[in-house]
């Protein structure tokens, strides 16, 4: 199958490569670029393990062709760490509140939570539960994930206030 030239930005770095038009974004990220944070869990958009941020929206990269990401700005969980390499507030709160166990859903979960908190910096528990419902976890029962996201919102808001 003939290949097409794709160019996009991944975690702040411009990347390009050749890919079959049918190539899914998740496979381009994982196999061509070696960005293995996002995972494949279901191939049907249900589990959200492949969630990445594309042009400011959460997308499930198992159902996006890399062709659709032409020129896009994509952020994965790898791109969420602080500039100095330390864990971001969200990542730290997931650890602090035991919001992960096997870790397989975690990259998608944190990437989705990152966008959720951009969209709604002061969510209620109900809003977090609704906003995260596109990401499945088989280990945690979500209770500590919800706790981690709410705690991250508090910390981030406090930091924002302190900065202002």
């Amino acid at each position: 199958m003939s290949k097409m030239h794709v160019k996009l930005t991944v975690n702040g770095t411009a990347v390009e490569g050749l890919a079959e038009p049918r190539t899914l974004l998740i496979h381009f990220l994982r196999e061509s670029l070696g960005v293995t944070g996002p995972h494949v869990g279901c191939e049907t958009s249900h589990c959200g393990a492949c969630t990445v941020d594309m042009d400011g929206r959460s997308v499930k990269s198992c159902t996006v062709f890399v062709a659709q990401a032409q020129g896009a700005d994509v952020t994965t969980v790898e791109g969420l760490v602080n500039a100095d390499g330390s864990l971001s507030v969200l990542q730290e709160m997931f650890r602090e509140h035991h919001g992960l166990q096997c870790g397989f859903c975690t990259p998608g979960m944190i990437t989705r939570a990152h966008r959720l908190l951009q969209e709604n910096p002061t969510p209620t528990e109900e809003e977090v539960r609704f906003g995260m419902a596109g990401n499945l976890c088989r280990c945690t029962g979500y209770q500590n994930i919800v706790k981690a996201i709410l705690a991250a919102a508090d910390v981030m808001n406090a930091q924002k206030e302190a900065a202002e």
């Binding site: 293995t36 944070g37 995972h39 969980v77 864990l87 730290e92 650890r95 870790g103 397989f104 975690t106």
Partner: peptide, 21 residues
Amino acid sequence: RKRVEDVRFTQGKGNYVDDIK
């Protein structure tokens, strides 16, 4: 005790079978 595994997992640095290349 906070989990030592989480430092890797929270930043997408786990190493699962499908990550092997």
